[in-house]
């Protein structure tokens, strides 16, 4: 965990850890895991709200809890940039982490795999593997997606690859 800012570290320690090692093909054990996922997501969201650092919405897109969709946003120069967020729970979960996708940014940055999967290889995958099965979706968002947004959104904005929705609207009107 060297190289992580103290803020992220304190946040991380407050997200409840999970204990059931089960994937979507494990029946009742998966339901148990899903409950733990919900608990840690609820705790993380509540914590973000209480610290005025709310930055994502996520909910299961199917009853089995194998597909998740939502939104995430990042504030840069006092402007809010919002993106659709989605991922599947892989069959080998939690041995392998979910591959978080921001489909709107597909092709706009090279820190991304095909289909808008953000690159987690360096900063996140080793941490995930070391902490299996204790990390869950909330940890993936906190340690995977949040640092990616913090690193990439300013570059994308400054290079003009993405525009704020107000700017985009006004420039298309003129």
């Amino acid at each position: 965990m060297e190289g992580w800012d103290p803020n992220t570290k304190t946040t991380l320690t407050q997200i409840p850890l999970l204990s059931t090692k089960a994937g979507p093909r494990d029946g009742a054990a998966w339901t148990q895991r899903l409950k733990e996922e919900y608990k840690s997501l609820i705790a993380y969201t509540q914590m973000n709200k209480s610290k005025d650092n709310d930055w994502f919405r996520i909910s299961a897109a199917n009853p089995e809890g194998t597909r998740w969709t939502g939104k995430c946003w990042y504030v840069h120069n006092l402007l809010k940039y919002e993106f659709d967020l989605q991922f599947d729970i892989p069959v080998t979960y939690p041995s392998t982490a979910p591959e978080i996708e921001l489909p709107e940014l597909d092709g706009k940055t090279h820190k991304m795999y095909r289909g808008g999967k953000i690159c987690l290889t360096v900063h996140f995958k080793p941490l995930w593997a070391k902490n299996c099965p204790r990390f869950g979706i909330a940890h993936a968002l906190c340690l995977g997606l949040a640092p990616w947004l913090a690193a990439e959104v300013p570059i994308l904005v400054d290079s003009g690859m993405i525009k704020h929705k107000d700017d985009a609207a006004s420039s298309s009107e003129s």
């Binding site: 409840p16 919900y38 997501l41 609820i42 969201t45 709200k49 909910s59």
Partner: peptide
């Protein structure tokens, strides 16, 4: 904490939705 807190999946889902 997990033993005392709510343990119903549907309930948990609603809790998260309420936060959303």
């Amino acid at each position: 904490a997990s033993a005392t807190a709510t343990d119903d999946l549907e309930d948990l889902r609603r809790q998260l939705e309420a936060l959303n």
